[in-house]
Simulated assay, not measured.
Amino acid sequence: MTTLRAASALLLSAALASGCVRSYRAEPPLSFQDFPYTSLQGQAWPLKRMALPKTAETYGLATVPEVAYVELNPEGPRTLVFIHGLGSYLKFWRYQVDTFAAQGYRVIAVDLPGYGKSDKPASFPYTMEAMADVVREVVLTLGIHRPVLVGHSMGGQTALSYAIRYPEEPGALVLTSPAGFERFSWKEKAWFKRVFSSVLIKSAPEYSIWGSVRQSNFSRWRPELEWLIEERVRVASTPDFDAYAYANVRTVDGLAHDDFVRDNLGHIQAPTIIVFGEDDRLIPNPFMHGGRAREIMEYGHAGIRGSQLTGLDRCGHSVQLDCPQEYNEAVSAFLKKLPASEEGER
């Protein structure tokens, strides 16, 4: 697998040099705050900010951090809260936010601390439990009753932590290629902590960004997704990228420490669907475990009573972007089976 990745990196480097794919390294810097958060038609989403005093108090932060979020169709009877994955931001739900709002759902998509347009406090712990506390504070502040938590990868592990610790609060879980099911030994956790560094993230050449995004996350890459590459390349030279890189390093360590989630899946009460790409190249970890994503997802499926397991063929890790039509259909069918929303009680 390592040899294959090295070969892919060489091919991408050659493609950049030959002009077969576009290079963005000569483009002017683009800050996180300038990222266009828009629909597929280019319409700007209404961006809001929320202070998190409870989070600041719980984790002893010197200042109260703020998170950015988007809200669509605020009068919808059932609320979907979209939680992004590692290294990404709420725009990774670009094919879902407007779609589900149009179906009548109230939609909230949040940038977690350290990511996107949210604050990036160095003193925040960046564990999945802390991330879950942030999501919960957003939910409670907005007065949302029994939200459907829709989490991708790291966001899936965040949703799992939320649902385990506060089992009566979520109305349902949509776990999208979730982290949290894979077992890591103490040696592997130590390796993650030793290997991942801010310098490594900041010094990544453009061809490796193409590889990490295009090759590792997608099975059906298409040109319309190149904004993922452009924004990642152009933001790397901006002042707040250091804080983002540090957040990533801390988060990777938090992700690896998933024993709490693995050992407590039986506490989850909410109806749950696990949707994943059968061609996921990131879960299980290709450098340590290898194997197929289905094996890992079946562990979670077996541990969560009554859960539904849906694998999508020829789809990669970022399945909601890679195969949006199939993903949206699977999630829509699951949501339609849920009991009538109780949000009128909020």
Score class of each variant (00 low, 15 high):
M1Y: 08
S13T: 05
G19H: 10
Y24G: 01
P28K: 10
Q33V: 04
D34F: 03
T38E: 11
S39A: 12
Q41T: 15
A44M: 12
A44Y: 12
V64H: 04
P77R: 09
L80D: 06
L80V: 14
F82P: 03
I83T: 09
H84S: 12
L86M: 13
S88E: 11
Y95I: 00
D98C: 06
T99L: 04
A101Y: 01
A102Y: 05
Q103H: 10
G104R: 10
I108E: 00
P113T: 02
K117I: 02
Y126I: 02
L140D: 13
T141W: 06
G143W: 10
H145V: 12
V150D: 02
H152W: 09
S153I: 06
A172F: 03
G180S: 06
A190D: 08
K193W: 01
R194P: 01
V195A: 00
S197A: 07
K202F: 05
A204E: 14
A204W: 13
E206Y: 13
E206C: 11
W210F: 14
G211C: 02
S212G: 13
S219G: 10
E224Q: 14
L225D: 07
V233Y: 01
F241K: 02
V252R: 00
D253H: 09
H257P: 00
D259P: 00
R262L: 01
L265F: 08
H267R: 12
A270Y: 02
I274P: 00
F276I: 04
M288I: 13
M288K: 13
M288G: 05
H289C: 09
G291Y: 12
E298Q: 11
G303I: 09
I304M: 03
G306T: 07
E329R: 11
A330M: 04
V331L: 02
L338C: 02
A340R: 14
E343G: 15
E345M: 14
R346H: 14
